[in-house]
């Protein structure tokens, strides 16, 4: 199977985030990591390749710093990488992101494209589905099990409240992957060394610009949401904090 994994670089989970001066996005001076479900998508692609042979390519659209997520994927075992490198690739809506990705892989004919089910920053949960529409191939979302069959794929979809569904579909296809579908591997020292030798194709803005449209979503304002409740805030040494919580539970909430 020839598999493509779409990976986005997002701010690290614990990174303290601050607004940019325009109040439209966060300030860039944070540490970054691979979007969590994308790591599971990569792991799944590597496992499929180990079972059925073929190739795993990884792709990201973003500034120079985002090359790091591709390097990590190569170190874990991906065969090659594609980097749409430009600051502008990080400022588009999901449809344009999908258009850019589609333009960069024109003529490649992947059997399977996997993405994360949503990003931890904007979180539109759309890019993979839109990529399928642009490529004219079927898709399925929130996948937590993949089995290749003679005719295509047998998949396990997660549904709400502990429900699941099996579906079968033809290939080529796009799947969006849920975190927890597998156990992630770590990169080995040898893997990290080998990664340096693996091909990294750069795609410039000008190469795909003609395939993009106007971004039709606009972030007017980003802000810190207010508390929805009257919250009693306790910032004290552990012993003192514990006393205050117990007092609240006894006197105010009356649950003790």
């Amino acid at each position: 199977m020839k598999i493509l994994v779409c990976i986005k670089q997002v701010p690290q989970k614990d990174a303290p985030l601050r607004l940019n001066p325009e109040g439209t996005w966060i300030r860039d001076d944070v540490s970054w990591e691979t979007n969590e479900p994308d790591a599971y998508a990569l792991e799944e692609a590597l496992r499929q390749k180990e079972k059925h042979g073929g190739e795993v390519a990884v792709i990201t659209a973003g500034p120079a710093r985002s090359q790091q997520v591709l390097r990590e994927a190569l170190a874990k075992g991906a065969d090659r990488a594609i980097h749409l490198e430009d600051d502008r690739f990080a400022q588009m809506d999901a449809a344009n992101t999908a258009r850019a990705l589609a333009a960069a892989i024109e003529g490649e004919n992947f059997d399977l494209i996997v993405t994360g089910l949503q990003s931890d920053d904007f979180g539109a949960a759309q890019t993979g589905v839109l990529l399928a529409e642009i490529l004219g191939i079927p898709h399925a979302t929130i996948i937590i099990g993949i089995e290749k069959t003679d005719t295509g794929l047998k998949l396990k979809r997660e549904l709400e409240a502990g429900h699941y569904q099996h579906i079968e579909m033809t290939m080529p296809a796009v799947l969006t992957i849920q975190s927890g579908i597998n156990k992630l591997r770590y990169a080995t020292l040898i893997g990290i060394k080998q990664a340096k030798m693996k091909p990294m194709r750069k795609v410039a803005w000008a190469e795909v610009e003609g395939k993009l449209s106007k971004s039709v979503q606009k972030i007017e304002k980003l802000y810190v949401p207010g508390s929805q409740k009257k919250t009693r805030k306790i910032e004290a040494p552990a012993g003192e904090a514990a006393k205050q919580v117990v007092e609240y539970l006894k006197e105010t909430a009356r649950v003790l």
């Binding site: 949401p225 919250t231 009693r232 805030k233 552990a238 012993g239 514990a242 919580v245 117990v246 909430a253």
Partner: peptide
Amino acid sequence: IFEIADVAVVGDLFQVVPAL
């Protein structure tokens, strides 16, 4: 989580939980 909490304890759970 603090946006919907009645009581928000800002602290290290490894210290607060045993004390609590």
